[in-house]
């Protein structure tokens, strides 16, 4: 079995008496997008800081690419890229100069650095404005530039802390598409996000932490199945239709409200339930899945609180 690219074992971090991380254990497989979810102050940024060797843990152990985060953090930083919760751009320097500086910092030879800078700027649609000061750019462009910087040296692993936070719909979509492309080329992504739809769409696995402790860890569908798949159905003749489906084994709950049915199912596929409703004389206008991961997330956090 291939060694995980990130391995965390009983990691703790105390700031005074406050436990930012409280026995966190998890692992991340290579070539995947790993979603690290949690509320503000849950311990996500502390975890990333420890994995990058920027903060020393109070206890436990962690390794990235097989290197210990305390004793071999230089090796880790050489091989990973990071887009942290701020863009970290030198706003008075041009986009090209920002990338050139980090290309040299990663010791890319001059000709390779030039080629890489041009490639990542072109890939992210920023090449034409490379001579503009980074500070004159929109938030979305700055975020894309920071993403370009993080992948400049072709890292095996990318830490991305809220890469689409504050972006408009178009920019966020461009970033998500770009991330999917990176994983297709073999990069592993460790992603923190507050956007549950994004996590559900992108991530092969998600971990939910709260108050520095791991609440759940698995494929998004596994977390969803714990709380059920929500489906909202709108149509005509829904009154009384609940009785036709409520006894089905795949229906966890069924509530009729405001002229619609709100169902919670054990399966992500509602087609059998819809067929029963149609057979019961319901004329269906719309079948819409709920924001599943968000429900599961909220339920877990509420239980822990």
């Amino acid at each position: 079995m291939e060694q995980p690219i990130v391995e965390i074992d009983e990691l703790t971090k105390y700031y005074g008496t406050l436990a930012a991380l409280d026995g966190l254990s998890l692992s991340v497989a290579r070539g995947s997008i790993f979603g690290f979810l949690g509320t503000n102050g849950a311990g996500k940024t502390t975890t990333i800081n420890i994995l990058l060797g920027l903060v020393e843990p109070s206890g436990g152990a962690a390794s990235v690419l097989g290197f210990d985060v305390v004793d071999e953090s230089d090796e880790i930083r050489t091989r990973v890229g990071a887009l942290l919760d701020e863009t970290g751009l030198y706003e008075q320097m041009s986009a090209y100069e920002n990338l050139w500086f980090y290309a040299r910092a990663w010791r890319l030879p001059k000709d390779q650095a030039e080629a890489r800078v041009e490639r990542v700027l072109s890939d992210l649609g920023l090449w034409d404005r490379r001579h503009d000061p980074a500070g004159s750019w929109s938030r979305g462009m700055q975020q894309r530039l920071a993403l370009a910087r993080a992948q400049l040296h072709d890292p095996e692993l990318l830490f991305l802390d809220e890469p689409t936070a504050g972006l408009d719909v178009v920019s966020a979509r461009e970033v998500r598409d770009h991330l999917a492309g990176l994983v297709g080329r073999g990069t592993t992504i460790f992603l923190t996000t507050h956007n549950m739809t994004e996590a559900e769409e992108l991530c092969d696995r998600v971990a939910i932490i709260h108050r520095g402790r791991l609440l759940a860890d698995g494929h998004p569908d596994e977390l969803l199945s714990a709380s059920g798949y929500e489906v909202n159905i709108e149509g005509v003749n829904l009154d009384g239709a609940a009785e036709a489906i409520v006894r089905r084994p795949d229906v966890v709950s069924c509530v009729s409200e405001d002229g619609r049915l709100r169902l919670r199912l054990t399966t992500p596929d509602p087609s059998a339930v819809v067929a029963d409703l149609v057979a019961a004389g319901v004329s269906i206008h719309e079948v819409r899945r709920g924001t599943h991961l968000e429900d599961a997330f909220l339920e877990l956090v509420r239980e822990d609180s």
Binding site: D74, L84, T87, E91, A105, R107, R149
Partner: peptide, 14 residues
């Protein structure tokens, strides 16, 4: 102050 320190420290520069 300009929020560039953490990114600089996360680089491979010694």
């Amino acid at each position: 102050e300009r929020k560039t320190l953490r990114t600089l420290l996360a680089s491979t520069l010694s």
